[in-house]
Nucleic acid binder design. Sequence first.
DNA 1: AAACTAGTCAACCGCTAGTCA
DNA 2: GTGACTAGCGGTTGACTAGTT
Length: 334
Amino acid sequence: MVRTPCCKAELGLKKGAWTPEEDQKLICYLNRHGEGGWRTLPEKAGLKRCGKSCRLRWANYLRPDIKRGEFTEDEERSIISLHALHGNKWSAIARGLPGRTDNEIKNYWNTHIKKRLIRKGVDPVTQNSLISGRGKSENPPGFPQKQKVIQTITSDDDLDDEKVNNNNKKSGVSSARFLNRVANRFGKIINHSVLSGIIGSGGPLTTTTTSTTSVTVDSESDKSTSSSFTPTSNLLCQMPVHDNGNVTSSSSTFSDSSVNDPLLMYCDNKDNMGFSRFLSDEDFMMLEESSIENTEFMKELTRFLEEDENDVVDEVTPVYEYQDIFQEIDHYFA
DNA sequence: AAACTAGTCAACCGCTAGTCA
DNA sequence: GTGACTAGCGGTTGACTAGTT
């Protein structure tokens, strides 16, 4: 197939920075006729630009819904989380940050975040530790350094490396880490309501002062699922309390106040049982109906929680005392 | 004050996927 | 099925600015 050039090779097509007059022409035309027809637009709008250039100018700078100015801390955290999930899929990342363009995010990543990663000893491409021996042993198969990186970078930026490292060690199975792991591991395949439900239930774990709110489960399809679905937390909250009806929290990992948390109870269980064991048939059917991947999700989550269970924790704080930390995450899904 | 360097970011380029005749 | 065309994406470039020597 012979590809025709994007722009006619005629002389006179302008390149480089746009003038206010050109911007005005483009805005006027698009306000009147709407987007589309980029190839013929320049001629109709009286611009000596190629259509591609017009589209880019509009998409990146002239669109009325574009947010300008510096990135907020939350936006930065979102970028990092989404980048961990999508890699250099800037458009996908941009979808998670309303008002920001892929180009802007890409630039911000390359000029700010990437440098910070390197400064903190993290490979910006693989997001593995650049410091030998720091990455491998800490991460279970299929769950690489990335998640820790997210936490490291999204923690207080001014923390020195030592402090950051200490936090990583200390936080152990923090709530944010747990959520990061779950979100990034399953974000692509599960009904976001499921995750929100888990978030809503508080999760099994602990949190620290430097925890992030950056967990961002993505993809439009994830958001499109039914509102009638009962979140996992609700289902779990309805489930019977352990086999013998006694709820105990024998593990030193969890605080006493954790006993009412279904996921915690699950984690506390040493029998390696799956999630389905905690659900009534009806509830489980609801789960299955709500997401095609739910069964697989539950298996994975089961395995996942087992991994977390093996982690060492120095400090314990009941998760549901930090509900507000997760509200933003839920808000993201709203 | 001039030259140089580094950082930033708007814009461009090349490519691909999707659509339609 | 094929080819032309369009829109969009990600990587790269280069102009501009600020800081340093």
